[in-house]
């Protein structure tokens, strides 16, 4: 059993010529923590469904755990655990019943299923609510139960489509910790999609950014920040008019400038070197920002930059 993923030039075109995935290729190594980032509608969930036997690709090659997804879907299903973006829970069953049910379908005996359910309830902090109908759970509780169901059979590869959406910070941290533990201690391969760039930055070994169905950047978090990241000079003003004048004063072709309400942000490769220039321009017009910060590149900036540039011209790896 190996925990690799191999994707070669997959395309998925939905009815009505919606080209959700257009020629995506990547490899995930056994035991790697791989994050898939992208704006809404980029094709993340579609890719997850293609990899997990729920959708058939229009073309391309998909191998999960060493099996061809198209030819051996049953073998793939045994090797993977999947938490889709939308939880999959029968509201008429209790938390414990759902976990036992899931375990039985993965070949556990009644006794083993009971034991496994108990462990998992403990793990996701639902022991006290185990005998309530899952339909009466809060959104976050449902999300945790869904994750527990995903882990029932100790899969070699985990697919997690925005698993921490809707969780409070404490529960989000707890889930991160568990995913990290599965990855580090049990060597589980993780394929995670997320909107929380911080999440990807902290957890992932490698990140791919997908936009409009195509991968636009791949690398370790550090690599992406180094090669694509820009320093940001953030000027905050008390009055919006001041911000507007400041924007006029500093905006040039040499660097990207943006204004949102009272804030002006200047993105440049080397923030400190243009700082003097910016301050001089502001002085000339007698503009005084209430706050001025220079921030090193964050994954957020990389993300926004990569997905924006694509709108205009196109950027490839």
């Amino acid at each position: 059993m190996n925990g690799t993923i191999h994707v070669e030039n997959i395309e998925k075109t939905f009815k009505g010529d919606v080209r959700a995935v257009r020629g995506v290729s990547f490899d995930v190594a056994d035991g790697e923590f791989f994050a898939f980032l992208g704006p809404n509608g980029a094709g993340k969930s579609t890719t997850v469904q293609l990899l997990t036997t729920l959708l058939k690709p229009t073309s391309g090659k998909l191998e999960v755990a060493g099996y061809d997804v198209n030819k051996d879907p049953e073998k793939v299903r045994l090797s993977i655990g999947v938490a889709l973006q939308e939880t999959g829970i029968d509201p008429d069953l209790k938390g414990r019943e759902l976990l036992e049910f899931q375990a039985r379908l993965f070949g556990f005996s009644k006794k083993e299923a009971k034991k496994r359910a108990e462990e998992l309830l403990e793990l996701v902090g639902l022991t006290e609510d185990a005998d309530r109908l899952s339909g009466k759970y809060s959104g976050g509780m449902r999300r945790r139960l869904d994750l527990a169901m995903t882990l029932v059979h100790q899969p070699k590869i985990l697919f997690l489509d925005e698993p921490t959406t809707g969780l409070d910070p404490a529960n989000r941290k707890a889930i991160w910790r568990e995913i990290k533990r599965l990855n580090k201690e049990e060597g589980t391969t993780i394929f995670l999609t997320t909107q929380y760039l911080e999440e990807a930055d902290q957890l992932a070994d490698r990140i791919s950014i997908i936009n409009k169905g195509q991968i636009v950047a791949t690398g370790t978090p550090a690599e992406l920040k180094r090669t694509l990241g820009l320093d940001a000079i953030v000027l905050q003003f008390d009055e919006e008019e001041e911000a507007i004048s400041a924007y006029d004063a500093v905006a040039t072709d040499e660097y990207q400038t943006e204004r949102v309400k009272n804030d002006v942000t200047i993105l440049a490769e080397n923030g400190t070197s243009i700082l003097a220039d910016v301050i001089r321009k502001l002085d000339e017009r007698n503009l005084h920002p209430a706050q001025l910060n220079v921030k090193p590149p964050s994954l957020d900036d990389v993300f926004i930059q990569v997905t924006n540039e694509q709108k205009e011209g196109g950027l490839n790896e």
Binding site: L54, L84, T87, G88, I89
Partner: peptide, 11 residues
Amino acid sequence: NGFFSRLLLTP
């Protein structure tokens, strides 16, 4: 409620 996808993901 998405439960059917869960069923399809079992072996």
